[in-house]
Amino acid sequence: MPPIADVLTPDGLAAPVGLRTKDLLSIGDLLPEEIYLILDTAEAMKEVGTRSIKKVPALRGRTVVNLFFEASTRTRTSFEVAQKRLSADTINIAASGSSVVKGETLADTVRNLEAMAPDIIVVRHQSAGAGHLVARLCRARVINAGDGMHEHPTQALLDALTIRERKGTIKGLKVSIIGDLLHSRVLRSNVQLLQVLGADVSVCGPATMMLPDMARLGVRATTSIDEAVEGADVVMLLRIQLERMSGYFFPSLREYFQLFGMTPERLRRAKPDAIIMHPGPMNRGVEIASDVADGPYSVILEQVANGVAVRMAVLYLLADELQS
């Protein structure tokens, strides 16, 4: 395998390095060495973003479809920037609401796209497993950009890249993930990835938002935020999905913030060099105080920057498989 830098020269050709699987649907599909390959590739990709002409030809002539059934600004933009930096031909399809509402089934939407021979389809959908359905229906590589409560694998990868940059390694770090655990695809991807990379993961949230059968995940769970934060190297906050809360999960945003909101005072229990992460979009004053979000420990915007690099890496590695 040639150095990644070689393939990123303006006339560089991609060498056959890549992933074992056709698609990236779930962190669980990746072997540890594939995770490292993605992270290493992403580090190399970051350099492209520092150039005055932020473009390499790795995906020239490739057609990538961003098929988004769910509103997204950050993730869709991140994928699109990544694709453009790799010179792919990018098409954005924003299907408002579910395909069923429009009268066309997801299967038909995908079959129609497939007929136009895209190389990669990036799909976000409100239903868990939608990416699996898309992948079964087409030859194109499929990247899961978030499927219901299931997974958001590129988010976990960009989180891992951010932690590794800041801490040097992930092995042995105490990572606390706090917030709406039940509905979070970010959590499901992160728990698996961080465990593979050797982190000591604990999770915290209201008892109403714990995952059923969580013991089998091998993580420590607590409803005490002080206990969760104690000695943490990394504090990752999860978004409270205001649109999903029906009054059954917690009584009010005010009480949620009182019990689970991350404040500078609470953060004092963490390690002095702890970092604060959030996948966005943030609810200031709900899961995170502005003082924390904007404070010196926050790496939230680094996550966003790394998102582009990680998505470039994934696109590049999957596209590379197309050649071999």
């Binding site: 497993g129 299931h150 059968d213 969580m214």
Partner: peptide, 10 residues
Amino acid sequence: EGYHATMLGL
């Protein structure tokens, strides 16, 4: 409701 549904986000 159990481990598999939890992991699959169902």
